[in-house]
Design a protein around this nucleic acid. Structure first.
Length: 574
DNA sequence: GCCGTTTTCGGCCCGACTGTTTTCAGTCG
């Protein structure tokens, strides 16, 4: 391998090929390239290693031709075929198709007839009334294009799950209160609890779909109505997010919920499976291909059962092997949302948190937790509000007093210390040894070179008093890439040293990510799902971390803080 | 371009909505 190329980069090249082939109106190849790209994104192993073993064609969706192209990418970092396609299709056409209402056909036409290659040029042409002269366009098209460009610019793209979930739940609740609505559920990537979401999908059942649609499009936060029909309507709401509502009859709710939950790849795989068994699957039910009769399905469980599968949880529906696992009976029993017996990472007003330890403890008790680890920041470079050895002693006295007083919940004295550039925690061993929970996290110099950074984190994992590696990759969703780390080495060391990997539930972290959880679990690691709450009302964000664990195929056994406090201490003390 | 419990050739998920159209293509999910 001449050039180091990540699986993600390889997949991005194939996705671009697929898009450009679609512009050229080539049939079926786009889907073939996308299937191969999805496989490469999904496999745990580095694609270069698979190539070295000569096993590229064993990957689903990869045949002789794509295997050849993969070799070229791995050799040179580039693909001649892609360069030729780009030259042929023209610059900017792919970007044009990202504007709502513009697809591959219209993008090509606009480029070929008017030389348009970006949103600015498109806007100018629409304002000048030049687009209405093209076949298939009129004045209305120009107005729609201008509105779509505005929406396109306003939209930041994807949004954090943790930010959109409350917004979506509020809309869902208002629809649920409408008298014409029978059932209503979140669907799409929100129901799958994907870490970022593109839009909000909601499904309802009703005998009066028009009334539901009228109520939906009249919601106060709606800023633009993209479409309104009797079964499907789309709007844009205030934070610049699209919301799609579909309304079906009650009898179609189960198949519609399955369909509308996705993912697209999961659904395609499921429909293919249905076809193999003589069924045609759509959101309206299962149709027998021979008799053309629709079979009523009342629950998602029943739908999967008819297709010969156990129920597949929404968080798993990404076509990452869940259908095969379901078929062979090896689906994991996902960690339940109520499984945590406590939270091992919260901050109080002793450091940068908002609430007192007492307030946090009462809120944790209210949630049914048996224990709560108070892990304020240790004082270190850049963390002025952190605790030094003296403060830690004072805080411990407060914690012990509350433990005598409260009952029903045990507060564990802990600390979140920074891992210095040399790999050492910023507190000495004789301070750390008396604490129940020591979290070690990287907070600065996140852009160190891969080898140095890996050594730094490995040193912390091997430290005798470290229990948990906090937010292991340091990523911030939509803002900061993960640090350059040899993750397989980190996962192996953590498994070996009995150091739990944190799944940090902060909405912008969710670190480890779902796919890394799965890889780490395969390496034998265990996990702590923590809220990293800086206020009592953030304890509930742990559900985002649990969702991430579920998307990473983890069970309750993989999570240390599903265990009773006694077991927990034993496990960490090893 | 891939793939096989009908197939090594001939299929490839399925339907709603919009805007243009006068019977349907393009887009979207």
């Amino acid at each position: 391998m001449a050039v180091p190329v990540s699986n993600r980069e390889v997949a991005a090249i194939l996705y671009e090929v697929a898009d450009l082939l679609e512009m050229k109106d080539v049939k079926f190849k786009p889907a073939a390239y996308r299937r191969a790209a999805h496989t490469i994104e999904t496999v745990a192993e580095d694609i270069g290693r698979v190539a070295e073993r000569g096993e590229l064609e064993d990957l689903p969706g990869v045949g002789t031709h794509i295997a050849g192209k993969l070799k070229e990418i791995l050799e040179s970092g580039k693909l001649g075929y892609l360069e030729r396609l780009k030259a042929e299709v023209g610059p900017g056409v792919r970007e044009l198709a990202e504007i709502g209402g513009i697809g591959p056909k219209k993008a090509m036409l606009l480029h070929q007839k008017l030389g348009i290659g970006n949103a600015d040029q498109l806007e100018a042409a629409a304002r000048a009334g030049k687009i209405r002269a093209l076949p298939g366009f009129k004045e209305k098209s120009e107005a729609n294009i201008l509105a779509s460009i505005a929406t396109h610019r306003q939209r930041a793209g994807r949004s954090l799950l943790g930010r959109m979930l409350p917004v979506a739940e509020a809309i869902r609740a208002r629809l649920a209160a409408h008298p014409a609505v029978r059932q209503v559920s979140l669907a799409g990537s929100l129901r799958r609890m994907k870490e970022t979401i593109g839009d909000i999908d909601i499904l309802a059942s009703s005998a009066e779909p028009d009334a539901v649609m009228a109520a939906f499009t009249a919601l106060p936060e709606v800023t633009r109505i993209l479409g309104r029909g009797t079964t499907k309507s789309s709007v844009v709401i205030d934070p610049g997010v699209q919301v799609d509502l579909r309304v079906v009859e009650e009898g179609q709710y189960a198949t519609a919920l399955q369909y509308f939950t996705g993912s697209k790849d999961h659904n395609i795989a499921l429909r293919r499976r249905a076809l193999e068994r003589g069924w045609s699957l759509s959101e309206y039910g299962l149709k027998d291909e021979k008799s053309k009769k629709n079979l009523a399905v009342s629950t998602e469980e029943e739908l999967y059962r008819i297709l010969g599968l156990p129920f597949i949880e929404p968080e798993l529906r990404e076509n990452r092997g869940e259908i095969e696992a379901a078929e062979s009976g090896t689906l994991p029993a996902l960690v339940p949302y109520n499984a945590p017996a406590g939270d091992l990472h919260v901050h109080s007003d002793w450091s940068d948190g908002r609430d007192s330890i007492r307030t946090l403890a009462l809120a944790a008790k209210e949630r049914g937790y048996r224990y709560l680890a108070i892990c304020d920041h240790a004082r270190g470079p850049g963390i002025e509000k952190g605790l030094d050895a003296g403060k830690i002693g004072e805080q411990r006295a407060v914690i012990e007093q509350l433990n005598r007083e409260l009952g029903g919940i045990v507060l564990l004295p802990g600390i979140e210390c920074n891992i210095g550039p040399d790999g050492n925690p910023d507190l000495p061993p004789d301070v750390l040894k008396d604490l129940d929970i020591v979290i070690a996290s990287v907070h600065d110099s996140l852009r160190m070179k891969g080898e140095e950074m890996t050594q730094r984190v490995l040193a912390a994992i091997h430290h005798e008093h470290v229990d948990i590696l906090g937010h292991p990759t340091g990523r911030l969703l939509l803002r900061r890439e993960p640090s350059d780390l040899d993750l397989p080495a980190i996962f192996r060391a953590a498994a070996d040293q009995h150091v739990a990997l944190e799944i940090n539930s902060s909405p912008s972290r969710l670190d480890l990510s779902d796919t890394n959880c799965r890889k780490a679990r395969d390496a034998g690691a265990v996990f702590a799902i923590n809220s990293d709450a800086h206020a009592a009302d953030e304890l509930g964000e742990i559900r985002l971390g649990i969702a991430t664990a579920r998307r990473g195929w983890l069970t309750a056994e993989d999570i240390v803080n599903t265990r009773p406090a006694g077991d927990l201490r034993g496990w960490f003390r090893r």
